[in-house]
Design a protein around this nucleic acid. Structure first.
Length: 264
DNA sequence: ATGCCCTATGATATAGGA
Protein backbone atom coordinates (compact mmCIF):
# COMPACT_ATOMS: atom_id res chain seq x y z
CA UNK A 1 0.00 0.00 0.00
CA UNK A 2 1.42 3.33 -1.07
CA UNK A 3 0.45 6.49 0.81
CA UNK A 4 1.62 10.02 0.00
CA UNK A 5 1.29 13.47 1.50
CA UNK A 6 1.64 16.61 -0.56
CA UNK A 7 1.11 20.29 0.10
CA UNK A 8 0.07 21.25 -3.41
CA UNK A 9 -0.30 25.04 -2.93
CA UNK A 10 -3.62 25.18 -4.81
CA UNK A 11 -5.21 22.02 -6.19
CA UNK A 12 -6.56 23.85 -9.23
CA UNK A 13 -3.15 25.27 -10.13
CA UNK A 14 -1.56 21.86 -9.51
CA UNK A 15 -4.22 19.56 -10.97
CA UNK A 16 -2.20 18.34 -13.95
CA UNK A 17 0.85 17.81 -11.76
CA UNK A 18 -1.20 15.82 -9.26
CA UNK A 19 -2.90 13.55 -11.78
CA UNK A 20 0.35 13.10 -13.69
CA UNK A 21 2.25 12.25 -10.55
CA UNK A 22 -0.41 9.72 -9.56
CA UNK A 23 -0.15 8.06 -12.97
CA UNK A 24 3.61 7.63 -12.54
CA UNK A 25 3.78 6.66 -8.87
CA UNK A 26 0.42 4.94 -8.39
CA UNK A 27 -0.28 5.90 -4.78
CA UNK A 28 -3.29 4.24 -3.15
CA UNK A 29 -3.91 7.19 -0.85
CA UNK A 30 -2.85 10.83 -1.15
CA UNK A 31 -3.27 13.41 1.60
CA UNK A 32 -3.42 16.90 0.16
CA UNK A 33 -2.90 20.24 1.89
CA UNK A 34 -3.37 23.87 0.86
CA UNK A 35 -6.18 23.19 -1.58
CA UNK A 36 -6.94 26.92 -1.75
CA UNK A 37 -10.44 26.28 -3.04
CA UNK A 38 -13.94 25.62 -1.78
CA UNK A 39 -15.40 22.14 -1.66
CA UNK A 40 -17.67 23.12 -4.56
CA UNK A 41 -14.70 24.24 -6.66
CA UNK A 42 -12.62 21.13 -5.95
CA UNK A 43 -11.87 19.26 -9.22
CA UNK A 44 -13.62 16.08 -8.14
CA UNK A 45 -14.27 14.80 -11.65
CA UNK A 46 -10.65 14.86 -12.90
CA UNK A 47 -9.57 13.22 -9.66
CA UNK A 48 -12.27 10.57 -10.11
CA UNK A 49 -11.15 10.07 -13.71
CA UNK A 50 -7.67 9.38 -12.34
CA UNK A 51 -9.24 6.61 -10.24
CA UNK A 52 -9.67 8.22 -6.85
CA UNK A 53 -12.48 8.91 -4.46
CA UNK A 54 -11.86 12.09 -2.54
CA UNK A 55 -13.02 13.71 0.70
CA UNK A 56 -12.37 17.43 0.89
CA UNK A 57 -12.54 20.19 3.46
CA UNK A 58 -12.03 23.57 1.84
CA UNK A 59 -13.56 26.99 2.31
CA UNK A 60 -11.78 29.22 -0.16
CA UNK A 61 -8.51 30.92 -0.87
CA UNK A 62 -6.67 29.79 2.26
CA UNK A 63 -5.87 26.36 3.71
CA UNK A 64 -7.94 23.33 2.72
CA UNK A 65 -7.20 19.60 3.09
CA UNK A 66 -8.29 16.40 1.38
CA UNK A 67 -7.79 12.65 1.26
CA UNK A 68 -7.76 10.88 -2.09
CA UNK A 69 -8.08 7.09 -2.14
CA UNK A 70 -8.42 4.27 -4.63
CA UNK A 71 -8.77 1.64 -1.87
CA UNK A 72 -11.87 2.91 -0.13
CA UNK A 73 -12.75 6.01 1.82
CA UNK A 74 -14.74 5.55 5.01
CA UNK A 75 -15.44 7.16 8.38
CA UNK A 76 -14.61 10.66 7.20
CA UNK A 77 -14.01 13.14 10.00
CA UNK A 78 -14.00 16.86 9.31
CA UNK A 79 -11.80 18.91 11.61
CA UNK A 80 -10.42 18.22 15.08
CA UNK A 81 -12.31 17.75 18.32
CA UNK A 82 -12.40 21.15 20.02
CA UNK A 83 -10.35 22.64 17.24
CA UNK A 84 -9.43 26.25 18.10
CA UNK A 85 -10.62 29.06 15.86
CA UNK A 86 -8.44 31.78 14.43
CA UNK A 87 -9.98 35.24 14.38
CA UNK A 88 -13.39 33.67 14.93
CA UNK A 89 -13.07 31.28 11.99
CA UNK A 90 -13.00 27.46 11.93
CA UNK A 91 -10.23 26.91 9.40
CA UNK A 92 -10.12 23.79 7.20
CA UNK A 93 -6.89 22.20 8.36
CA UNK A 94 -7.62 18.57 9.24
CA UNK A 95 -9.56 15.71 7.71
CA UNK A 96 -9.52 12.05 8.68
CA UNK A 97 -10.53 9.01 6.67
CA UNK A 98 -10.12 5.25 6.80
CA UNK A 99 -8.71 3.65 3.66
CA UNK A 100 -8.55 -0.15 3.49
CA UNK A 101 -8.35 -0.33 7.27
CA UNK A 102 -5.67 2.33 7.61
CA UNK A 103 -6.63 5.52 9.41
CA UNK A 104 -5.22 8.61 7.70
CA UNK A 105 -5.30 12.20 8.92
CA UNK A 106 -4.32 14.92 6.44
CA UNK A 107 -3.26 18.00 8.38
CA UNK A 108 -2.16 21.52 7.57
CA UNK A 109 -0.78 22.92 10.82
CA UNK A 110 -1.01 26.72 11.18
CA UNK A 111 2.13 28.56 10.13
CA UNK A 112 2.54 30.76 13.21
CA UNK A 113 3.88 33.75 11.26
CA UNK A 114 5.99 35.27 14.07
CA UNK A 115 6.73 33.97 17.56
CA UNK A 116 4.97 36.94 19.16
CA UNK A 117 1.97 36.78 16.81
CA UNK A 118 -1.49 35.55 17.80
CA UNK A 119 -1.11 33.00 15.03
CA UNK A 120 1.79 31.39 16.90
CA UNK A 121 -0.31 30.81 20.04
CA UNK A 122 -3.03 29.50 17.74
CA UNK A 123 -0.51 27.08 16.21
CA UNK A 124 0.36 25.64 19.62
CA UNK A 125 -3.29 25.35 20.63
CA UNK A 126 -4.08 23.69 17.33
CA UNK A 127 -1.31 21.13 17.84
CA UNK A 128 -2.68 20.39 21.32
CA UNK A 129 -6.14 19.79 19.85
CA UNK A 130 -4.56 17.51 17.26
CA UNK A 131 -2.85 15.55 20.03
CA UNK A 132 -6.10 15.18 21.96
CA UNK A 133 -8.09 14.17 18.88
CA UNK A 134 -5.58 11.52 17.85
CA UNK A 135 -5.09 10.28 21.42
CA UNK A 136 -8.81 9.55 21.63
CA UNK A 137 -8.74 7.63 18.34
CA UNK A 138 -5.72 5.62 19.47
CA UNK A 139 -7.40 4.78 22.76
CA UNK A 140 -10.58 3.56 21.09
CA UNK A 141 -8.80 1.63 18.36
CA UNK A 142 -5.26 0.75 19.49
CA UNK A 143 -4.58 -1.98 16.93
CA UNK A 144 -5.64 -0.04 13.85
CA UNK A 145 -2.80 1.40 11.75
CA UNK A 146 -2.97 5.20 11.93
CA UNK A 147 -0.83 8.00 10.57
CA UNK A 148 -1.06 11.75 10.81
CA UNK A 149 0.51 13.07 7.63
CA UNK A 150 0.82 16.51 6.16
CA UNK A 151 2.42 19.90 6.48
CA UNK A 152 3.29 20.25 10.16
CA UNK A 153 5.05 23.60 9.73
CA UNK A 154 7.65 22.51 12.28
CA UNK A 155 11.16 21.25 11.58
CA UNK A 156 11.64 18.51 14.22
CA UNK A 157 15.42 18.93 14.59
CA UNK A 158 18.16 21.36 13.62
CA UNK A 159 19.18 18.93 10.88
CA UNK A 160 15.80 19.45 9.28
CA UNK A 161 16.70 22.94 8.03
CA UNK A 162 19.52 23.90 5.70
CA UNK A 163 21.16 26.30 8.16
CA UNK A 164 19.89 26.54 11.71
CA UNK A 165 21.82 29.79 12.21
CA UNK A 166 19.48 31.44 9.70
CA UNK A 167 16.48 30.58 11.94
CA UNK A 168 17.46 32.52 15.03
CA UNK A 169 14.21 33.89 16.42
CA UNK A 170 12.16 32.33 13.63
CA UNK A 171 9.13 30.11 13.78
CA UNK A 172 9.22 26.41 12.80
CA UNK A 173 12.27 25.62 14.96
CA UNK A 174 11.37 26.91 18.43
CA UNK A 175 11.42 24.81 21.58
CA UNK A 176 7.69 25.41 22.02
CA UNK A 177 6.85 24.03 18.58
CA UNK A 178 9.18 21.07 18.96
CA UNK A 179 7.70 20.37 22.39
CA UNK A 180 4.25 20.26 20.79
CA UNK A 181 5.57 17.65 18.34
CA UNK A 182 7.13 15.70 21.21
CA UNK A 183 3.76 15.65 22.97
CA UNK A 184 2.26 14.25 19.80
CA UNK A 185 4.87 11.49 19.81
CA UNK A 186 4.20 10.86 23.51
CA UNK A 187 0.69 9.58 22.77
CA UNK A 188 2.25 6.77 20.71
CA UNK A 189 3.36 8.16 17.37
CA UNK A 190 6.77 7.98 15.73
CA UNK A 191 8.31 10.26 13.13
CA UNK A 192 8.81 7.94 10.13
CA UNK A 193 12.15 9.06 8.75
CA UNK A 194 12.12 9.71 5.00
CA UNK A 195 14.89 8.75 2.65
CA UNK A 196 16.20 11.59 0.51
CA UNK A 197 16.63 10.52 -3.09
CA UNK A 198 19.33 13.16 -3.37
CA UNK A 199 20.81 15.66 -0.93
CA UNK A 200 19.26 16.37 2.44
CA UNK A 201 15.78 15.04 3.31
CA UNK A 202 13.92 18.28 2.84
CA UNK A 203 10.31 18.53 1.74
CA UNK A 204 9.93 22.29 1.24
CA UNK A 205 11.93 24.90 -0.60
CA UNK A 206 10.72 28.51 -0.72
CA UNK A 207 9.86 29.89 -4.13
CA UNK A 208 11.90 32.99 -3.33
CA UNK A 209 15.64 33.44 -3.76
CA UNK A 210 16.01 30.32 -5.91
CA UNK A 211 15.98 28.35 -2.68
CA UNK A 212 15.60 24.98 -4.39
CA UNK A 213 18.69 25.36 -6.55
CA UNK A 214 20.67 26.48 -3.52
CA UNK A 215 19.53 23.60 -1.34
CA UNK A 216 17.80 25.94 1.10
CA UNK A 217 15.17 23.48 2.23
CA UNK A 218 13.31 22.32 5.29
CA UNK A 219 11.72 19.04 6.39
CA UNK A 220 8.29 20.11 7.60
CA UNK A 221 6.04 17.59 5.83
CA UNK A 222 5.95 14.63 8.18
CA UNK A 223 4.60 11.13 8.67
CA UNK A 224 3.62 10.53 12.30
CA UNK A 225 2.59 6.90 12.67
CA UNK A 226 1.37 4.64 15.45
CA UNK A 227 3.12 1.30 16.08
CA UNK A 228 0.77 -0.84 13.92
CA UNK A 229 1.36 1.53 11.00
CA UNK A 230 5.11 1.86 11.59
CA UNK A 231 5.47 -1.94 11.73
CA UNK A 232 4.23 -2.13 8.15
CA UNK A 233 6.52 0.57 6.71
CA UNK A 234 8.87 -0.78 4.06
CA UNK A 235 10.08 2.55 2.71
CA UNK A 236 9.62 6.30 3.08
CA UNK A 237 11.04 8.77 0.60
CA UNK A 238 10.77 12.31 -0.71
CA UNK A 239 10.15 12.92 -4.40
CA UNK A 240 12.25 16.05 -4.87
CA UNK A 241 12.00 15.60 -8.66
CA UNK A 242 8.46 16.92 -8.33
CA UNK A 243 9.81 20.24 -6.97
CA UNK A 244 11.58 20.94 -10.26
CA UNK A 245 10.44 22.96 -13.21
CA UNK A 246 7.73 25.45 -13.99
CA UNK A 247 4.45 24.93 -12.19
CA UNK A 248 5.83 23.02 -9.20
CA UNK A 249 4.43 23.33 -5.70
CA UNK A 250 6.91 24.66 -3.16
CA UNK A 251 6.51 21.32 -1.33
CA UNK A 252 7.57 17.89 -2.60
CA UNK A 253 5.44 14.78 -2.04
CA UNK A 254 6.47 12.44 0.79
CA UNK A 255 5.74 8.79 0.04
CA UNK A 256 5.42 5.95 2.54
CA UNK A 257 5.10 2.35 1.44
CA UNK A 258 3.47 -0.31 3.61
CA UNK A 259 3.58 -4.05 3.29
CA UNK A 260 0.41 -6.07 3.00
CA UNK A 261 -1.23 -7.78 5.93
CA UNK A 262 -2.45 -10.66 3.75
CA UNK A 263 0.17 -13.07 5.09
CA UNK A 264 -0.93 -12.64 8.72
C1' DA B 1 22.49 23.56 -11.28
C1' DT B 2 16.37 22.10 -13.06
C1' DG B 3 17.24 29.20 -11.27
C1' DC B 4 16.39 34.98 -8.04
C1' DC B 5 8.05 33.75 -6.09
C1' DC B 6 3.51 32.04 -6.34
C1' DT B 7 -1.66 31.90 -5.56
C1' DA B 8 -6.54 33.55 -5.20
C1' DT B 9 -9.36 37.40 -4.77
C1' DG B 10 -15.75 41.39 -4.94
C1' DA B 11 -8.11 41.84 -8.06
C1' DT B 12 -5.57 46.78 -11.19
C1' DA B 13 -2.96 45.77 -4.86
C1' DT B 14 -2.91 42.66 -1.12
C1' DA B 15 -2.44 38.93 2.23
C1' DG B 16 -0.26 34.92 3.19
C1' DG B 17 3.26 31.59 2.76
C1' DA B 18 7.64 29.76 6.38
Amino acid sequence: MRIATWNVNSITARLDRVTGWCQVHAPDVVALQELKCTDDAFPTMPIAAAGYQVATLGTGRWNGVAVMSRVGLDAITYGLTQQPQYDGVDEPRAIGATCDGVRIWSVYVPNGREVDHDHFAYKLHWLAALRDTIAAELASNPDRPLAVIGDFNVAPTDDDVWDIAKFDGATHVTAAERSALAQLRDIGLVDVAPRALKGAPYTFWDYRAAAFGRGWGMRIDLVYANAPFAARVTDCWIDREERKGKGASDHAPVVVDLNSTSTE
